[in-house]
Write a protein that binds this DNA or RNA. Sequence first.
DNA 1: ATCAATGCAAATAATTTGCAAAAAG
DNA 2: CTTTTTGCAAATTATTTGCATTGAT
Lengths: 157, 157
Amino acid sequence: MPVAETQSAKQKFMEFLAQKGLRITSQRQAIIDTVFGTDKHFTADQLLEWSRARDRSVSRATVYRTLPLLTESGLVREMDFGKDYKFYDPNYAEHPNHSHIICQDCEKIVEFESEKISMLEDEISHELGFSVATQKLQITGTCEELKKLGACKNRSC
Amino acid sequence: MPVAETQSAKQKFMEFLAQKGLRITSQRQAIIDTVFGTDKHFTADQLLEWSRARDRSVSRATVYRTLPLLTESGLVREMDFGKDYKFYDPNYAEHPNHSHIICQDCEKIVEFESEKISMLEDEISHELGFSVATQKLQITGTCEELKKLGACKNRSC
DNA sequence: ATCAATGCAAATAATTTGCAAAAAG
DNA sequence: CTTTTTGCAAATTATTTGCATTGAT
């Protein structure tokens, strides 16, 4: 996670807040630093825990109130991987069109980008009378290791 | 929704139940008839309502207990369209690789299939060391009508 | 008979919200 | 000062579950 890009996403979000007349409190700062200081997917619960490591005064309510702001800004996206809780992906600032491939065995998630798929999406959407705003592609699969060894070792997937 | 195919999905699910040693009760029958008698997406709540129209004795608990069986069979897929409740799509029996495009304005959902995208997904997944099990693609967009008229009339999207 | 399946009502758990106190500008 | 933001605890809501009873085979 290059520092320059990370800071830029953070900057963008702080501008987003400013534009809405919203304040940058110490709690929000801790949450923002956490979100844009990682490239990992996280849950609301994890975000609370990690933010609290920076600022003990962050509450669950504030996390849940900040999450919609993050998604509204477009810099973070809510993801459903079939669990009871939602995941949040902070990598949309740098890679707005990336997709996910999820290992059925170890549940590890790999991100990838495909220019070709994006173009096809544009093309098909246009044929259907739409212009694309966002795309979300999730592939579920098994890794080679799983097929060969009967279980994947959490290495390649 | 061609009757032959619809019945075949229903048959498949009843075989699935039989194979697991599960019984076909009147309540399950009503739910199954409902699910495979439509090509519309539905919520748990809608499924309850529609099933009750066929058999008044269907309870919410039975609907919630049957839904996992339907998804486990692969004939119905759970979908997250960003709402608080889940949607279920009964069209995976006939079109296992279809995708969705969602109008941001009227929220109507159009389904489409793309052989080209499927092939790219296979190709990329293989490069990453995976073989594809399932795929889920959601495109969010605005329809032409929306852009021209400022609002879409719920006709083309 | 036997064991799975049901309805009911209570439980669960993630997320949301009202409110009085605290902090930002 | 004024307005937003906070933490807390209570509320909300989709979904799940325990249990005594019913029904399929």
